[in-house]
Design a protein around this nucleic acid. Structure first.
Lengths: 213, 213
DNA sequence: ACAAGGGGTTTTGTATACACAAGGACGCGG
DNA sequence: CCGCGTCCTTGTGTATACAAAACCCCTTGT
């Protein structure tokens, strides 16, 4: 693996996991020494982070980790609703019903995973990830997929803020199952509606648990 | 201006204006010598181009200019309809009616510009650009605006393919005026519908004039 | 006392040199 | 004549050295 990729992944994880808090300045020499690489690959990593919006270039003073305010979360979910709603509708039109029906059945059994400890929770997150991947594959639109990908980076960062209690996760699993069911049924409007419902519930939960700043 | 910015702008223009055709390999030393800069800033420029999707890293053999097929154009407009439709609806909800009413009046007078020569045509394109900018400002959603921005780069590239005849431009001006009118009226659904109509007409025109490959 | 300008320090931007990996061509052997 | 191996070329990936620019602070003048 290239050194620049390693630096990018490390910094990206540090930012997403809130080990590098918003406002932190990332000086090039400092970070390159911390990660044990040279400035050149580190600069490429910082460029990629800035392109994604995780950092912003503060002229002459290095790059700083971007902040996420409550208004940002609202805007984020507004775009997310637009993109994922359309994605669900397109998946309902073009996807393979059998695939999503299988996912629906798995999601209905998910509450058992949620009750368990950490490894089971990881399995649940993988299951949700597989639903996202199935939707991505079904819509067969590279541009739409990429737009959603660039969103997910920020969403993971927001998700870390919310306390993922078992009650919310159980409800979310049911909502995901409803989305999968609508897609399997080939009903675009229903799929979009189910997605809208799920996202509004998620947003409410995030805003309710994390009252800050 | 930084050398990397200059290189980025030059390469971006070369690709958008089809002076660098799809499939062209951009070797680092070759391009750095052509632009009169060193490899380091050129690499940053290539990274930004690749992040935007204008080029793709062809493992170990430099980066190549990405191709745009007819399927790509379909996918591009599918995403565009999703984003700009939502943007128009949000602008209708949140925008200042007076701003868009003024734009509507200007757009109705646009056919006079279209008949003229090149400088008048440039004025027309500026007018359409101002409508886009007004929508961007009205929706006040940085994430949605950025998603549309990353789309517009590819759209400009496609637009260069289509022969912009006067008849189509006149019709497009009327469609734009309809969008502005719907936003000024504060009617989100109408604004979205007008946008959908305009984009479908644009797509049809592009596909009709440019039958390839 | 406050503001404006200048110098020092720090940090980024650029250039170049080197290492490594991949691809192709040439030559050798079967 | 064909196939395979090795060498050479070419290109990217990384490190480091140098230059320019921005910021901070100190000084000085009003």
């Amino acid at each position: 693996m290239r050194a620049s990729d390693k630096a990018y992944a490390a910094l990206r994880d540090d930012i997403i996991e809130w080990r590098l808090l918003p406002g932190t300045v990332l000086a090039e020499v400092e970070q390159s020494e911390r990660l044990g690489i040279s400035r050149t690959p580190l600069r490429e990593a910082l460029s990629r982070l800035t392109a994604e919006g995780l950092t912003t270039a503060a002229g002459g003073r290095g790059v700083v980790v971007t902040d996420i305010s409550l208004e940002d979360i609202d805007e984020l979910f507004e775009l997310r609703e637009t993109l994922e709603g359309r994605a669900a509708a397109l998946a309902a039109e073009r996807g393979d019903p059998a695939t999503f029906d299988a996912l629906r059945r798995e999601l209905l059994e998910a509450p058992e995973l949620i009750g368990g400890q950490d490894p089971a929770l990881h399995d649940y997150y993988c299951l949700v990830g597989r639903l996202d991947a199935a939707i991505d594959a079904a819509i067969s639109n590279a541009y739409l997929v990429q737009a959603m990908r660039s969103l997910r980076v920020h969403l993971v960062r927001v998700r870390r803020l919310a306390a993922d209690d078992a009650a919310r996760l159980t409800a979310a699993a049911a909502e995901h199952a409803a989305i999968a069911e609508a897609i399997a049924a080939g009903n675009p409007r229903l799929a979009e509606a189910a997605t809208t419902l799920h996202l509004h519930r998620s947003l409410s939960h995030v805003k309710a648990t994390h009252i800050p700043h």
